[in-house]
Nucleic acid binder design. Sequence first.
DNA 1: CGCTGAATTGACGGCTCTCAATGTCGGTGG
DNA 2: CCACCGACATTGAGAGCCGTCAATTCAGCG
Lengths: 249, 249
Amino acid sequence: MQIAQTSHIAHQCHVCDPRGGCLGMQLLESPGVTDHLKQARRISRKAEHVFREGEDADAFYVVRSGSVKSYLVTEDGEEQVLGFYLPGDVFGLDTTETDQRMSSAITLETTSLCRFPHAYLADKSQGSNLLRITAEQMQRDHNLVLMLARKDADGRIASFLDDLACRYWSRGYSASAFLLSMSRQDIGCYLGLAVETVSRTLTRFQDCGVLQVNRREVEILDHDTLRKIAGIRVDASGCCKKVVGLDSA
Amino acid sequence: MQIAQTSHIAHQCHVCDPRGGCLGMQLLESPGVTDHLKQARRISRKAEHVFREGEDADAFYVVRSGSVKSYLVTEDGEEQVLGFYLPGDVFGLDTTETDQRMSSAITLETTSLCRFPHAYLADKSQGSNLLRITAEQMQRDHNLVLMLARKDADGRIASFLDDLACRYWSRGYSASAFLLSMSRQDIGCYLGLAVETVSRTLTRFQDCGVLQVNRREVEILDHDTLRKIAGIRVDASGCCKKVVGLDSA
DNA sequence: CGCTGAATTGACGGCTCTCAATGTCGGTGG
DNA sequence: CCACCGACATTGAGAGCCGTCAATTCAGCG
């Protein structure tokens, strides 16, 4: 299995499909971004917080390399993951009316970020740009809501993997083989599933030949079937459905 | 039971709690809003679309009276409700990069809206205002994700009712008694539950004395308990929990 | 008065959570 | 080099919540 996880960022975006988007890259390459902004770079090691919920916010970030997890903590101390950000993704725009962080962000691995002061958007009269960036975030939220409300475990896992694949692909990496930078626990917290369910579902997908999975390494073997499972019930002729009796494998 | 559903909009906002917010009212009353804007009013009867997913978008709306449902349609033709908008709420800011509607919006009753061209935000260099408005929307989305991912049916229904109560209260209406402008079907589509589950849960809450419900009329009798159920597992001493055996009522 | 759609109520099955044990990998120290 | 350890992941068994199907009731309306 070949793993496409890399430590550098693609120089240019591929054609961006509607799913992903490379607004972050555009930002990094836009003429308005002066050199001193580009140098507002920040490298964090694994499991370091970029910011925490409630902190004062005056900037947002673009991922240059690595990955970031956005999450919030429920009243009973549990964690709810809101999203994962890959190279080219923008995050940190979700602030309250009083400019405080609405969520926390933590790196999942060694990560390089570029910091953009909020003032940057006001200065350049980039109001429409702002709408465009937040649009991306809203689209993500909508997708997450859709998954949580209307899909079963199979659909959620399949959607999650398909989404990752598409996003990697749109950034020039392999859509078939990649490394998961997040733990099973994180995936479960994101999809509203127990860790065990995540693990079991991945195993079953593997048994059906849809994908190959080993720890953090994932290789998608049958992307069509994966999408069928992700979409609500195109019913891939019973493939990969849970069986009550014994496994025929 | 006294019902607080009214046909006029409150003249002034009460103290806005963090949950709700009256940015819409502030918009309507801000000095930058000229009279011609205020006259950009639009009255719709029940079940009329304000806009549909995919349409070109050049404006957002503030609810003056009535209520609006935001939703999108899944691949298999089912509906996913994203939110309900009450008087004072802003909606219609969720547009794609190419300025197309990301969701549909339909009135739930006779509704009066005020239309704000997107250009309005750019003109007044209200970039920060924009961020503030979208913040409200993001907060809602986060809450919805939290409910869908981490709460059971009881918690979702309780949260839903508590949220409605708070929003009505912050707008000067009764927080204890109000009319639901949406059907059970809509509530289910919003919370990711079957209609039957919504109905059963409401009935059980009523049997426990937490609330009184009759069709669209709701009166909250024990707001504390409702909040305990809404919060994840403060465990209100078993109150209102489903019972396996016979009802003691 | 009958019709229609919404809402309620009941029975049943299945998906997923919980609890628990086992397996695996990476790091640490002897 | 090897044994041990802790974190993560996998696998199994059982229970319960909720979705589905179905029947019934109720409100509104011509």
